[in-house]
């Protein structure tokens, strides 16, 4: 595809979405749906706008991380008032030390 050079370098909104930052981190957050109170603290504080409280089919609201973008920073984990988030090491970093 031929490169497009816009007038003055104007860019379209949200075009950063093509940058999948989900592979940056070594850890990822796991939400305990039982403990989550859907308080949205994590949603407001995630630097990468990638954890959102959604309503599940059964009507329960829970925070769901978007691993396509999550950088594993641990902000959500550190602020969850319900202690509902755990950070886990990604499989590929679970190296055996010989």
């Amino acid at each position: 595809m031929v490169m497009k050079i816009t007038l003055g370098g104007v860019s379209k909104p949200h075009s950063s979405k093509t940058m999948k930052t989900g592979d940056w981190g070594t850890e990822y957050p796991v939400v305990d749906e039982e403990k989550c109170t859907a308080c949205k603290t994590c949603e407001y504080l995630c630097p990468d706008a990638c954890i959102v409280v959604v309503e599940k089919e059964d009507g329960k609201k829970v925070a769901v991380p978007d691993y396509d973008y999550c950088k594993g920073c641990g902000v959500c984990f550190s602020v969850c008032p319900a202690g509902a988030i755990k950070m886990e090491l990604k499989e590929i970093y679970k190296l055996e030390v010989c």
Binding site: P47, Y69, G72
Partner: peptide, 19 residues
Amino acid sequence: MSYFGPGHGACPGCGLTIA
């Protein structure tokens, strides 16, 4: 909350983007 990000390049845990 869809006015900024995701896909930006800030360091993981950056305070600027939260604000």
